[in-house]
Design a protein around this nucleic acid. Structure first.
Length: 630
DNA sequence: GCAAGGTC
């Protein structure tokens, strides 16, 4: 019996082959870059001792496109919403390797990631295998389920396969088709429209880095977030507010200390209202300490690391772009130093031997002694678990030790050190402190003062990326005592404008709204930058993302058209599609149904956009004019 | 020359 196993990426096929074979494989090179075929024997309970070939693809091997008669310029762009589509093999060498190896296989076992895209890639692999071996049918195509590479987990997966989830395959093919139809039709429409307009042509050069004005179902909501924030900052009007604050003068060992108390009611925008309350208060020369509470508090260690968190933190701490952070993580992964960097999972599988991983880091001069403390002084704690599990990859963690000096560049060093420290922090205890809260009653109003004493830094000792420090200690107040009010004032403040969009905030928004995935969020930001829709600028050390004139014009133009039931610049439609895809997976609706509904919506929007092209152009011209004559 | 999704 011969079994062909195919994984989604080379690293998985290598690791799985190593586990199943007991480390004795014959390795064959292939014509496809990065891909090896591993031959070995394995005893499957249901088939006995089998000849196994384990190989992989490198992500998708096919893509969807239009036939040549629908290429750019050959048909009106709107036709692309209904035009036939083709499946094209985009990775010939990879496809051929599968086809070759499948010739003599009795069984095909799919080892792609256990997520939606993985299911589709599994289906692509099946097509490649069937191209030479039509005996491979649903009867003898198996799908193994695994979410990490721990030995027993993989052995269990090999022995308990299920079948491909065809609903998931349908859902992905639905997404692909919609993204292509909508993206290609609107891109051609916009590009042709702006090219015909002379004003657009002369003014666009400064924004333009590419000669295409692309529309994408992820690009535009991303751009929309940035424009939205920009407009909120620009149209912000500061408002005055009023509040009461109290200082109490205390003598502590001969030293005079002013203890500031804050009003529990915050602030009000009505000056007269605060004035009346204040007048009521100042009638009393004394206030009363009504409550003194000391209670233990903790500062929680971080959750296990996801891609989105890695990118947000690298932007915040090291000022790296999301793409640079992911690229660096990718390199570290390919060298075997860290685990797979694209994951949504923020909980470690129970069976994973985390202490072994900590042990590997003990040799480091910076964090090695901390590792020893964790392992030998009973300071190790099982990491907290978050709510996310992509069922495909564990959280990002260090796999092997490397000395920072052996890494090529600064970005690699920073990201590796961050991943290690984050992991060690996860395996440490929360920081502990004591929170002291004193409540003061003055007239009818309540005020509080708080003091924090950090008692044990614990994880913070290894995790310099977060600050949690003791505040000035409060003097000893006694419950029930009266205190003279030395500084009771009514003060004025004003609301401050929001900041422009930063990359970590944008990543957070995209993640929360389902725009893009862990693997693509960075690319979408990169793409709209490259298209000239947004620019990054530094202000006082922080990098902000601002819309360009073109980016503003596009979003405002689409908003001015006011489509029915749809917004091309907001995230709702993508989120709705995401829900529909899940319904396809759950069998509550069909791919055809979703395609019909969504295409219908976009067709209406397309027709209107084509008719009202002048509105789109005018919006852009208006932005340029207002910037020239502010 | 168009998308978004995998992965190197």
């Amino acid at each position: 019996m011969k079994i062909l196993c195919v994984a989604e990426k080379p690293s998985i096929s290598k690791a799985v082959a190593k586990i199943l074979s007991g480390e004795s494989t014959r390795t064959r090179k292939t014509r496809a870059k990065y891909i090896m075929n591993y031959d070995f024997k394995f005893n499957f309970p249901q088939y006995g001792l089998c000849d196994v070939t384990m190989t992989s693809v490198v992500g998708h091997i096919t893509n969807i496109d239009f036939p040549p008669e629908y290429s750019w310029g050959k048909c009106p762009p709107g036709r692309l919403l209904e035009a036939p589509t083709l499946e094209v093999v985009s990775q010939q060498d990879v496809f051929k390797n599968i086809a070759n190896e499948a010739r003599t296989a009795n069984i095909l076992m799919i080892w792609t990631d256990c997520d939606r895209e993985g299911e589709f890639i599994g289906w692509e692999i099946l097509q490649a295998a069937r191209s030479t071996n039509t005996n491979l049918t649903s009867e003898n195509v198996l799908r193994s389920q695994f979410s990490h590479l721990e030995r027993n987990h993989i052995l269990h997966a090999a022995k308990n396969p299920i079948s491909l989830d065809l609903n998931a395959v349908k859902a992905v093919s639905c997404r692909m088709e919609l993204d292509l139809r909508v993206g290609a039709s609107f891109t051609r429409l916009l590009t042709d429209l702006f090219r015909k307009s002379s004003v657009a042509n002369t003014s666009m050069d400064k924004d333009k880095k590419s000669n295409v004005i692309s529309y994408g179902t992820c690009q535009f909501p991303t751009l929309g977030f940035i424009v939205d924030r920009y407009l909120r900052v620009k149209s912000f009007i500061s408002e005055k507010f009023w509040y009461i604050s109290v200082d109490i003068k205390m003598e502590n060992d001969g030293e005079v200390q002013l203890v500031p108390f804050t009003w529990t009611r915050g602030h009000f925008f009505d000056r007269l209202f605060v004035t009346l309350i204040y007048q009521d208060c100042i009638a009393n020369p004394f206030g009363k300490i009504t409550k003194v509470i000391r209670k233990p508090t903790s500062n929680w260690r971080p959750l296990p690391l996801t891609t989105v968190e890695l990118q947000k933190d690298c932007a915040r701490i090291f000022k790296m772009s999301a793409k640079d952070a992911l690229d660096a993580a990718e390199k570290l992964y390919n060298k075997g130093f860290i685990s797979y960097p694209r994951t949504e999972t923020d909980q470690f599988p129970q069976a994973m031997d985390l202490k072994e991983l900590i042990g590997k880091q003990s040799q480091d001069t910076r964090w090695g002694s901390y590792c020893s403390e964790l392992l030998h002084e009973d300071k190790y704690r099982t990491p907290r678990g978050g709510k996310n599990d992509d069922k495909a990859h564990p959280p990002i963690h260090p796999v092997n030790y490397v000395n920072l000096s052996a890494l090529d560049n600064d970005k690699l060093k920073k990201v590796y050190e961050y991943v290690v420290r984050r992991f060690l922090a996860c395996c440490s205890d929360d920081a502990k402190g004591e929170l002291n809260t004193v409540t003061l009653q003055w007239g009818k109003e309540e005020f509080t003062a708080t003091g924090l004493a950090v008692i044990a830094k614990n994880y913070l000792n290894i995790y310099p990326y977060k600050k949690w420090e003791s505040s000035k200690q409060l003097p000893n107040f006694i419950e029930g005592e009266s205190r003279s009010i030395t500084g009771g004032k009514m003060k004025e403040g004003k609301t401050s404008p929001p900041n422009h969009m930063t990359e970590p905030e944008l990543i957070g928004l995209m993640d929360a709204n389902g725009i893009g995935t862990d693997a693509t969020i960075a690319e979408h930001i990169f793409k709209i930058t490259n298209r000239g829709y947004v620019v990054k600028t530094k202000q006082r050390g922080t990098e902000y993302i601002l819309p360009s004139e073109l980016g503003m014009g596009l979003i405002q133009g689409f908003d001015r058209i006011e489509f029915e039931n749809i917004s091309l610049s907001k995230p709702f439609l993508r989120k709705r599609l995401e829900n529909s895809l899940q319904e396809i997976v759950d069998g509550r609706t069909t791919k055809e149904q979703v395609l019909r509904e969504v295409i219908q919506l976009y067709r209406q929007a397309f027709v209107q956009s084509a008719q009202k092209g002048n509105i789109l152009l005018q919006a852009y011209k208006d932005i340029i004019d207002s910037n020239n004559n502010p």
